[in-house]
Every structure is written in C-alpha cells, then in structure tokens.
C-alpha cells in the first residue's frame, strides 16, 4: 500500500495542486451565493431555480466544471489532512491515514462523476 502510494505520488500531487487552484478560485464565491446571499434574499433566489441550474449544469462545459470542482478539491483536502496527521506525529507511517484520505477522495471523485452523469439521464 505504502509502495503504491509512493508510485502514485506525482499523480496525487497534481490532483492536489489542481484542487487547490479550483477550490481557491471557485469555492468562496460559490459558497457566498448558495449559502449566504441567496438564502437571505440579497441576490435573487431565482438564480438557483431548478430549471436554470439544471440547464447550466447539464451543459457539457458545466458538467465537466462541476465534476472537476467537486473531485479535485477533495484530493487537495485529502493531501492537507494527511499532512496534518504527519505533523502531529506517527500515524502516517503505516499508510493507514493516507489510505483513508486518498480513498475517500477517490470515492468522492467517482460519486461526483456519477452525480453529474445523473443529470444527463
């Protein structure tokens, strides 16, 4: 397991870097609207109407962007959390923390692709 993780490190690092970029650029504004201004009526809630969002999300560029915006930051999250565990000692060396972190990111990524495909069928 540890060996596999070492071999995959260059890939994981790229997913992590991409996730940092996407998360940093897109999440704050996305969260601001969907979780703050729209629920409080500061921006029109109609912007989040079912037909409109479905139309945007089920377009090809929309679908790709959404799948990437969910999955890549999960890899960034996994990498950060794994390193937090390393910084606080010990738990990492058997590879268990890495397995849980990257495993959850992999499952989340797969689910993100399924979630996006569900919009099309």
């Amino acid at each position: 397991m540890k060996f596999l993780m070492l071999k995959l490190e260059p890939i994981i690092w790229q997913l992590f870097g991409g996730g940092m970029m996407l998360g940093a650029f897109l999440y704050p504004a996305y969260l601001l609207v969907i979780g703050f201004t729209a629920p409080l009526g500061i921006t029109p809630i109609e912007g989040l109407s079912y037909e409109r969002v479905l139309g945007l999300a089920s377009s090809i560029p929309g679908s790709v962007l959404i799948a990437a915006t969910i999955s890549l930051p999960l890899w960034a999250a996994a990498h950060h959390v794994r390193h937090i565990f390393i910084d606080f000692g010990g738990l990492e060396r058997d590879g268990f923390v890495g397995l849980v972190c990257y495993g959850s990111a992999a499952v989340g990524s797969a689910l993100a692709i399924i979630a996006v495909l569900r919009l099309h069928f």
């Binding site: 999440y27 959404i66 999955s71 959390v81 390193h83 937090i84 989340g108 993100a112 979630a115 569900r118």
Partner: peptide, 30 residues
C-alpha cells in the same frame, strides 16, 4: 492552512450532495 483541508472536504461533499439533489428532481432540489 492545513486544517482548511477539512473545510475543503466538507464543501466538496456538500457540493456533491447538492448536485446529487439536482439529479434527483425538482422536489429534492427545492
């Protein structure tokens, strides 16, 4: 900065849930 990884996890999975709801139909989304 590292702890923000937990926030990224939460937001990523929350967004996953949001898109899942979108795929489950209008009632679920609303």
């Amino acid at each position: 900065f590292g702890l923000c990884g937990f926030v990224l996890y939460a937001v990523g999975f929350l967004m996953l849930r949001t898109i899942w709801a979108l795929g489950s139909g209008e009632r679920e989304w609303d």
